[in-house]
Amino acid sequence: MKVNQISVFLENKSGRLAAVTRILAENNINIRALSIADTSDFGILRLIVDKPDTAFEVLKKEGFSVSLTEVIGVEMPDRPGGLAGVLDILEKNNFNIEYLYAFIGRGDNGALVIVRVERLEEAVRCLEENGVKVVTGDRLYQL
């Protein structure tokens, strides 16, 4: 059920984000979702791509500090309260969300959000038990 996310360390200086996207483009890798967490000194770029393993290899080869992180893709109704319903479930069951961001494409029946929590497998089980649809990595990469 897990989704592999690429995380890249970026210094806060011009041209770094462009460099990453250029490398991905040259290797014919398509970005499905992204988010940037930034501080005054550095940022972390998080990406869901169609070919995570290739992306990891090429970025590493180009000298970036990269890691693969497991996240969950959660589908929810695309209407007010859709995300709130999912977060309520996680909160009630004491899953601490480290970060989340929206997916660019849509799932079969609604919006998609990428969520990073601790105790990932338990969280997936908990969401499914509560009737939330969790999308697999293979499916997400191709959306």
């Binding site: 996310q5 995380s7 360390f9 967490a37 501080t39 000194d41 550095f42 972390i44 998080r46 590493k60 500090s65 990269v66 890691s67 992180t69 480290e98 970060y99 990073r116």
Partner: peptide
Amino acid sequence: EVSSKLFADEVRKLEQLG
């Protein structure tokens, strides 16, 4: 330099490292 070994996916962890 933040090598792949030092790199963590979370801002909090990197700030802790610093």
